[in-house]
Design a protein around this nucleic acid. Sequence first.
RNA 1: GGAUCAGUGGUGUAGCGGUUAACAUGCCUCCCUGUCACGGAGGAGAUCGUGGGUUCGAUCCCCAUCUGAUCCGCCA
Length: 574
Amino acid sequence: MLRNATCGELTLSDVGKKVTLAGWCQKLRNLGSLVFMDLRDRYGITQVNIAPELYEKVKVKSEYCLQVIGEVVARSEPNPHLPTGKIEIVAEEINIFSKSKVPPFIIADETDALEDTRLKTRYLDLRRPVMQKNLEIRARLLKASRDYLEALNFLEIDTPTLIKSTPEGARDYLVPSRTKPGKFFALPQSPQIFKQLLMIGGFDRYYQIARCYRDEDLRADRQPEFSQIDCEMSFVSREDVLQVIEGLVSNMFEKVIGYKLPKFERISFKDAISLYGSDKPDMRFGMLIQDVTDILTKGEFKAFEGKRVKAIVVPGYADKCSRKVQSKDIDLAKKYKTHGVSFFKVVGGNVTGSLSKFYEQSQLNLLLARLDLKDNDLVIVGADENEDKMNVALGALRLKYGRELGLMNPDVFAPCFVIDWPIFGEEDGKIVSLSNPFTRPRDEDLKYLDSDPTKVLSYAYDTVINGSELSSGSLRIHDGKLQQKIFELLGLSDDEIKNRFGFFVDAFNYGTPPHGGFALGVERLTMLMAKTENVRDVVAFPKNLSAVDTMCEAPSSVPKENLDILGIQIKEND
RNA sequence: GGAUCAGUGGUGUAGCGGUUAACAUGCCUCCCUGUCACGGAGGAGAUCGUGGGUUCGAUCCCCAUCUGAUCCGCCA
């Protein structure tokens, strides 16, 4: 037996027991004729009292992996900050399993190393309690989701990860085929098509913890490979699916972090954009975007003419809003391809600011009343021909100030469903898909399919908590004719449809049940529960922003012979 | 594809035309019987990301390049 207790469990009631612990030497405190060692494992830290003679013999150092045999004793001076702080082990024997080089950074929650450094020796970084806690949250929420879904009769079925490339949406990761040189598999961006085929195959409730791959640029919350709790159900209404999502997510929060989520709000896509300036609204705080077009286009200020004018109010911020701050905000708004924003301040009950001179007092009073302005409030105003662009820009500013004013409390979770998404958008006069092409249009909107497709809303739904898109899903089309029609509206020719989705379209001719589902982002969920804004904190071995694993140095070159077998030649750099 | 910020001992930072390149921490040696961010004394450790330029002189200014972070585009 290499150990019979962990470093996190011993208490005063264990005093007198002889125990064997195993772990890593976290810290040594050598007082001369008395040496203390903090021994660390996954469960905690236990102090070991080592006699100088024993210490001389074993010569323990930082991060040595070792075993301690000794008696549990009560400490004469307990440490109230440590769960095991009332006891220590008097070492009788120390066996070193293996030595360690001096680690490149301090292995503790409060490490001062930058992430880049930590990633190069991730296995050391993973020893840090906070990383172990994060990965434990991840494991526990997966377990909770399995338990919940299994109880509802969902069947776990895995789907292939070497699949047909169907260029649409995200860029595929490609895998060359050896048996068919010159041809490629793609790694799945999601199991979408397969889970729908499972519905046709009669598995009315399917789920899977699915690995997904997207070869797109990364972000702090985006990795090229990630996991989804993927579900699909047959013979369901939108309401049925939303119930499952709400139940599942609430159950996970309760089981994993003991948080009771409130009932999920519902908001239409349209309202989310116009009130929050985002399709993933953070509902922990207000500061909603308001329409002031009728008031502010009536003045002498020509630049607002013919545009939609929208505003947010930052309470009590007028005196903090220097010229520098303003110019930063203008730049932020311009990032979203707007003309920028302007500022009003409320001073002594009056609306002031460089634009105020363009307006009559009566109009400014209207503004005071409409926005319910108080002294020292800051009003950020933007105008644009394209209302949604300005909404999105103001939405970004809303988040900036929400953060700054401490309104985004990480201990509070505000869930909502964003529903009624449009199916089509317009880009350069062309109809483009805004969702996946299998999303089912609302029955009441089918009549617009020919006349004005952009008016057609769908049975799609996103789950959003604290501004993070946790899941997205929809009812799917189950009628072959309607599916064909959607493909046509997207400008796909019969040949293209046949090439990309032929097998899928064929399947629809054999009795497709009405179905729908969703996919929950595992990393996003874990990030919320672990209260981190960085995906890499909840992935054991992540890629950096260039999609590189700096520890393994992947991707890498491969020998020419391997390429020859695949019929691949690398183009020389020009 | 674009924007911004940052690369200085192992680690994290300071310095921003002339410095013995500073501080903290880690590491090594010695002292220390109750530490838990132990304490004390001493020591080693840096071609200041790379290449070019400006200058009498560059870690510092300029250009290029590489690397990292964050955002926009992108992510059906």
